[in-house]
Amino acid sequence: MLFSLMQLIGGVILSLGWLPQIIQILKTKSVADLNLKSYLLMLLGIGLMETYAVNLVLTGVGLAFFITNTMSLTVVSAVVILILRFQPRLRK
């Protein structure tokens, strides 16, 4: 139980850590210094872990991991969407 609580608290902190980046993007409407490839790799990794988390939940364990991983998947997805939305367009 203690480790599940630690997982939940740690995962929430890690997920909330992305909020300043999202707020900064929304305020400045700039993603000039962000690397889309890095965020796509993070999204892929979290997506693979999400599959594992779903498997854990279906076997009756890992609910805290599933919750926090889903939160991370959501916020990193939001960053990727914002990068795609605000990235400078190449002009010919």
Rank of each mutant, 00 (worst) to 15 (best):
I83R: 05
S72G: 05
G10S: 09
S15F: 09
I22V: 14
L41H: 11
N69P: 02
V79S: 02
L26V: 11
L84P: 04
L56Y: 07
L26Y: 08
I25V: 12
M6T: 13
L40V: 01
K29A: 02
S77F: 06
S72N: 03
N55P: 00
G62H: 09
L56M: 13
F65A: 13
R85V: 14
Y39E: 05
L43D: 06
K92P: 15
F66A: 13
I83T: 06
V31G: 05
I23C: 03
A32V: 10
Q87A: 05
T68P: 00
N55C: 04
V54D: 00
F66R: 01
R91K: 15
A64F: 08
L82D: 07
V57A: 08
N69D: 11
Y52D: 04
I46Q: 09
T51H: 02
A32I: 09
R89N: 12
V12Y: 11
T68S: 11
I83S: 01
L16V: 13
L8Y: 14
G17H: 05
L26P: 00
T28I: 00
L41Y: 15
L82G: 09
M49C: 07
I67A: 07
T74H: 02
I22H: 00
T28N: 12
L19V: 14
R85C: 07
K27A: 07
Q7W: 01
L63F: 14
S72K: 09
R85W: 12
L40M: 12
L2A: 15
N69V: 03
N69Q: 12
M42G: 01
I83Q: 06
F65R: 00
I25Y: 06
G62T: 10
M6N: 12
T70V: 04
F65P: 00
G17Q: 02
L84D: 01
T74G: 05
R91Q: 15
M49H: 09
L56A: 11
R89G: 11
A78Y: 01
M1K: 11
L14Q: 11
G11A: 03
P20G: 04
V31Q: 02
L40K: 14
L8G: 09
K92N: 15
I9R: 03
G47F: 11
D33A: 09
V57T: 10
